[in-house]
Write a protein that binds this DNA or RNA. Sequence first.
DNA 1: TTTGACCCTGTAGTTTACTACAGAGACCAG
DNA 2: CTGGTCTCTGTAGTAAACTACAGGGTCAAA
Lengths: 150, 150
Amino acid sequence: MQNPLQILTRSGLAREAGVNLETIRFYENKGLLPAPERNASGYRQYDEADAQRLVFIRRAQNLGFTLREIKELLSLRALPKKSNLAVKQLAEQKIEAITAKIRDLKQMKQALEAISSACDGHGTTSECPILQAMEGRRSTANGCKAGGTK
Amino acid sequence: MQNPLQILTRSGLAREAGVNLETIRFYENKGLLPAPERNASGYRQYDEADAQRLVFIRRAQNLGFTLREIKELLSLRALPKKSNLAVKQLAEQKIEAITAKIRDLKQMKQALEAISSACDGHGTTSECPILQAMEGRRSTANGCKAGGTK
DNA sequence: TTTGACCCTGTAGTTTACTACAGAGACCAG
DNA sequence: CTGGTCTCTGTAGTAAACTACAGGGTCAAA
């Protein structure tokens, strides 16, 4: 317990947490990092808790959470006595969203494989089954429903 | 064969193809739609080929292609005598990319399910396994490798 | 002739998550 | 005291794919 409050500069924190220098100020503006203490010259002063917070953010990102959602997770984390139900729900919702995305991508892949397999790459573009499928001249794959994304 | 060249206004084309009015000008700037003929007042004049082109774009989008890639597909389509090998390759690359994305999402989902299943939602945030996993206090899921995305 | 619907242009805003830059001030070594 | 390296601020740029708006011109019907 020699340095319970080691002071980090902004670049020090960036190094520590493995993020870009500017990311820190960006997160501060977004409310993901609290506005830190300043020294006499106005320099930001960080500590290990801030580094931990950045690690938290990065891990949550790797699990698929957006910064908006991570902000919510952080605010829940800040209330130790609160029920963790909301956290669980956020996780479940994210799992659902990922599942849906995987489903969509699989469907997309399947449609693309179907039309791609109809093309051997040894003809001209004018008779290419892939291009024809995109033109709607052939419904090689049944998919390609209009107005899909939104 | 009564109207082999029915003239469409911009809003007419938008209606026909089911896209937003401004999208058309956006695509023109991006080079996805050719600059159309203009009438005496400078109004854009489209025809059925333009509507087909928009349909092509939408279908290709539904198959996961970006506008940049679609531009390439369109330029290949414009050369009927050219080999369709490049088209086939673009399709194969896209399938690869989708496959990779599905793999990443599955891994993400698995990690999230592992840490989420450790939480029943009946405790406080201070002892929430999900938050702990994000803090790195528990490596509930082995994943969460740093520096994942890029 | 007036009104409303359309069209034109350039530009700016949206979302997500940063990243970069310019111009100014601070700090430390030599 | 002079460099060079830090830090500060506000703002702008990146990618992707649009979407919206302001300020004007055009056209057709009543």
